[in-house]
Structure formats: structure tokens, C-alpha cells
Design a binder for these strands. Structure first.
Length: 206
DNA sequence: AGAACGATCGACT
DNA sequence: GTCGATCGTTCTA
């Protein structure tokens, strides 16, 4: 199965955050495949970014995965009840990662809906707000701290250029999308870093 | 040992 | 638009 290699993750984090838009995230769970197309990311760079958990190379039990080789999953608990998934980038020892903020559902939507909403029926509101936030994505993919440190070149969780690379049916993305950069969400405390335009989204051209 | 806080979400006015 | 939930992580002492 063709998937993004360690070499892909071993690059500048801002470049990776842009290039990850439009890629497909595959989660293998109980023999099934859940998949989504990446439509929103944010970059976090420990070397120079006060919003990064590993700012100034701060190395603790939590940030350990950020110091792992590129192509590692960094998953942490936020606000006591949600999780966020990051893809570790840059050479090993440079703590940096791309936060996954939003997906477009591609495969396994029924399973993801179950994980996210339980028995509650799908509604237009829920469909619209299905995978448009980092906590929602982790809930729908059954990702918790138990999956922190996963190797993204392995089988449980990985990325690829197209669904066929993971043995899934083709997916036709919307036409006329472009990358829009802007400030990151929820980092107002981070002094000068709060204004860094390190959030990237795929949006319809107007 | 204790306190403060958070890369969020959903319910509610 | 506002606000509370909820608990691990981090820092201070």
C-alpha cells in the first residue's frame, strides 16, 4: 500500500502543513477502514513558536512524541475531555508537528458517525459539523492518548495521496478549491506567535 | 501538595 | 453571541 513516507514528514513544518491539504488520512479499526480528506491544518514549531507545547525545546512526558522521528503521531488530551492529533515533522530532535483540524469524510462514515454521535440520528446540522474540529476528528477516528506515538508509516494510522493507495474506492474532491492561510485558533496567549498565519484551509474559491 | 490553565465542544440565550 | 464541562499537564513551593 502506497502511503506517505517518513521522508515526507522530514521537512519544513509549514510546507508540510500546506502539502497535507488534500491528502487522505486512513484509520484501520477492527478490520475496517475509516478515511477522510484533510481540509484544515495548523503548524506548530517548537524552535520558535510560543504556541507549541515544546516551545524552546521543552521536553516533558507529554511532549516526548514531538521529539520522536518524523512520521510519528502526537496525540494529547485537551480541556480534560478531547484529543488532538498531530503529525510530527522535521528531523528527529526538532520538536514540530502539524495539527489536524478538519476532514471531509471519505470512507467508513457510518462507523465514524457512530463513534461521534452514538445512536443519535444524523441531521443536517450534524452532517455540516461532522469532522470540522480537531476534537471531533479524534472522536470519530477513536484516537486517544493510547494511540500517542503511533508510527504513521505503519498500518493503524497513515496518510496517502489518494484512497486507491489504501485499497479504497476513488474519491472526487470538489473542484475550484484554494489554500487560505490565517491565524491559528485558540492561541491568543502565545504573544507574538498568536498572529502567525500558520492555519491552512482548503476553501471554495468565490 | 496545590493551583492554574488549556492547539475544544456543545448547549443555551 | 456566551458559558460551563472536566482533568491531565505543568509549574510553584
Amino acid at each position: 500500500m502506497a502511503r506517505l513516507s517518513r521522508d515526507f514528514y522530514n521537512q519544513d513544518t509549514l510546507d508540510a502543513a500546506r502539502q497535507l491539504l488534500g491528502k487522505y488520512l486512513i484509520r484501520r479499526l477492527d478490520g475496517r477502514s475509516l478515511a477522510g480528506r484533510i481540509v484544515e491544518t495548523e503548524a506548530y514549531v517548537g524552535r520558535c513558536d510560543k504556541a507549541c507545547h515544546a516551545y524552546g525545546y521543552r521536553r516533558t512526558a507529554r511532549t516526548e512524541a514531538l521529539f520522536a522521528p518524523p512520521g510519528t503521531a502526537y496525540i494529547y488530551l485537551i480541556y480534560g475531555m478531547y484529543h488532538c492529533l498531530n503529525f510530527v515533522t522535521e528531523p528527529e530532535g526538532e520538536p514540530a508537528a502539524v495539527l489536524l483540524r478538519a476532514l471531509e469524510p471519505v470512507a467508513g462514515a457510518e462507523v465514524m458517525a457512530r463513534l461521534r454521535y452514538g445512536d443519535k440520528p444524523m441531521t443536517p446540522y450534524r452532517r455540516k459539523n461532522f469532522l470540522n474540529g480537531p476534537g471531533k476528528v479524534c472522536r470519530a477516528l477513536a484516537l486517544t492518548r493510547a494511540e500517542n506515538g503511533l508510527d504513521l508509516t505503519g498500518d493503524a494510522l497513515f496518510l496517502c495521496d489518494k484512497p486507491e493507495d489504501a485499497g479504497l474506492p476513488p474519491f472526487s474532491p470538489p473542484a475550484g478549491e484554494k489554500i487560505v492561510a490565517g491565524p491559528r485558533v485558540g492561541v491568543d496567549y502565545a504573544e507574538e506567535a498568536r498572529d502567525f498565519p500558520w492555519r491552512f484551509r482548503l476553501l471554495q474559491e468565490v
